[in-house]
Simulated assay, not measured.
Amino acid sequence: MLFKKLTLKLAVVAASLSLLLTGQAGAADNLKGTIEIDGSSTVYPITEAVAEEFGKVHKDVRVTVGISGTGGGFKRFCNGEIPIADASRPITDAEKTACKAKGITYTDITVAYDGVTIAINKNNTWAQKLTTAELKSIFKSGSTVKKWSDVRKGFPNEEIKIYSPGSDSGTFDFFTEKVNGKSKSSRNDSQITFSEDDNVLVEGITNDKYAIGYFGYAYYVENKAKLKAVVVDNGKRAVGPSAQTIAKGMYFLSRPIFFYVNKADLANRAEVKAFSQFYLENAGKLSKEVGYIPLSKGFYTSQASKLK
Rank of each mutant, 00 (worst) to 15 (best):
H58S: 12
S137G: 13
Y260D: 02
E48V: 15
I160H: 02
A264T: 15
I118S: 00
A14M: 10
Q244K: 15
M1L: 15
I246L: 06
A304Q: 14
S18F: 14
E158H: 11
K288W: 02
N207D: 10
P45E: 03
K56Y: 07
V290E: 04
S296W: 05
K5E: 15
T47P: 12
C99K: 02
V63G: 04
S185Y: 11
I104P: 04
K236V: 11
Y279N: 06
I162Y: 05
Y113A: 06
D29G: 08
K140A: 14
F259D: 08
T193V: 12
Y217W: 06
T206C: 09
K236T: 12
I104G: 04
Y279R: 03
S141N: 13
D208V: 05
V230D: 00
G71P: 00
L19C: 09
E36Q: 14
R269L: 09
W148D: 02
V239L: 04
K102T: 08
S169V: 07
K263M: 07
P294M: 03
T42W: 00
N157E: 13
V13N: 12
T42A: 09
I67E: 09
T107A: 06
A112K: 03
F155W: 11
L295W: 04
F77C: 01
A283K: 02
K182P: 07
A270T: 07
D233H: 06
S137F: 01
I120N: 02
T301K: 15
K9W: 15
E53C: 08
A225Y: 08
A270K: 10
I82R: 00
G66I: 05
T34N: 13
K209C: 05
A94I: 09
S88F: 04
